[in-house]
Computed example of a mutant assay.
Amino acid sequence: MEKTLSIAGLLRFSVLTTTYYTERFDTPEKTAGYLFSPERMKLRFHLFEHLCLPSLLKQTDQNFTAIVLTAKAMPERYLDRLKALLRPVPNIHCFPVGTGKHYRLIKQGYDRIPDNGVSHRALFRLDDDDAVDRDFIARTRRLATGLMALQTPETPFVIAHNRGFYLHKNDKEPEVFDAVERAPLSVGTTIVSPVDSPVNPYRFNHRNLPQHLNTFTDISQPAFIRTIHGDNKSRPAQIGLTHMMSEAGIDAELQAYFGIGSAQLKSL
């Protein structure tokens, strides 16, 4: 049987769940108060509109689907704004879901993606405050197609994009620095598997994926921009090499691979 491939991703945009943020809030109502506060919504929309979404719109290969998973409970003004942003984009869809367990809602989002008659899917994850390089889809397709030839048809495997940049927004001067990670990062991590496989990139902690699935890491070029700011759910940590490049080198690679310079990135 010929192996054929489609590429699809899922982005969470302020999803309200009963099993997320429980270390900080003991009821969904308190979680909602935090998630949908005006200050937080201003930050999330700003990073989504100026960093995350443009990185998908700039893809050299537009043959992919993305689901933006969000909450039905989001105040109407924010939900309308999100839908309006995505309405002109034919391959990126807003999918509001009810309040439930986090991973079940994630599965609902991926289940919305049609299989289009292919044998395999490459499913990636991306957060609403991060970005991928503009060749991300094309490179993922090339790597997945080649690596499928090395696997038995039913074997899921991971493609992790471990080289990129961080934007650290703090009270002082924002910092942009380079990194090559030792373990899979969340940004752009992809699982390639048969269409009927239940596994997706949120099934395991991204750092632990090599414990569960064959994992191939790509550092051939910068693939991600990860933002560190006051509203990160996790505590971002760099596990690997950092600060190896000059400022001029960083700016040149940001321009070449993301279409954004250091100064513009710092101003976000």
Rank of each mutant, 00 (worst) to 15 (best):
L167Q: 07
D135Q: 05
Q255W: 08
N208V: 03
D178P: 08
N63I: 01
L35R: 04
D178H: 09
F216M: 00
A138F: 03
T22E: 13
P184Q: 04
Y166F: 15
L254H: 06
N200G: 06
K83Y: 01
P54F: 04
E76L: 09
D251Y: 02
Q108S: 13
A144Q: 01
N208I: 02
I113A: 02
I113E: 03
K30C: 03
R203I: 03
G188A: 05
K58S: 08
D26C: 06
I113T: 03
R77M: 10
S119G: 11
A263K: 15
T215P: 06
L123K: 09
A252F: 09
P153N: 12
R125L: 08
R44F: 14
N116C: 03
M41E: 12
H120I: 01
T152I: 09
A248F: 06
H229G: 09
D111F: 02
V158E: 02
T227L: 08
M41Q: 15
A73R: 03
G230A: 15
K169R: 15
H168N: 15
Q211S: 14
T99D: 07
H46F: 12
M244E: 12
G230W: 09
L209I: 12
D135V: 00
Y78V: 02
L265T: 04
L10V: 15
E23Y: 05
D115I: 08
N214C: 05
S234E: 11
P90F: 11
P88C: 10
N91T: 15
H161T: 01
E39G: 04
R121W: 01
S55L: 12
H206A: 12
H243L: 04
T17M: 03
Y166R: 07
H206D: 06
D171Y: 10
F64R: 00
M244L: 13
Y257G: 00
R40S: 13
G164N: 10
Y34D: 05
P114N: 06
L126D: 00
G109V: 02
H243Y: 13
T152V: 11
L167V: 13
T17G: 12
P174M: 15
F136Q: 00
G249P: 11
L150I: 09
I250R: 01
L10C: 14
K42L: 14
R40L: 13
I7R: 05
N208W: 03
F45Y: 07
S6L: 02
R235E: 05
A8V: 02
Q62G: 14
S220K: 02
L47H: 11
T17D: 10
P198L: 09
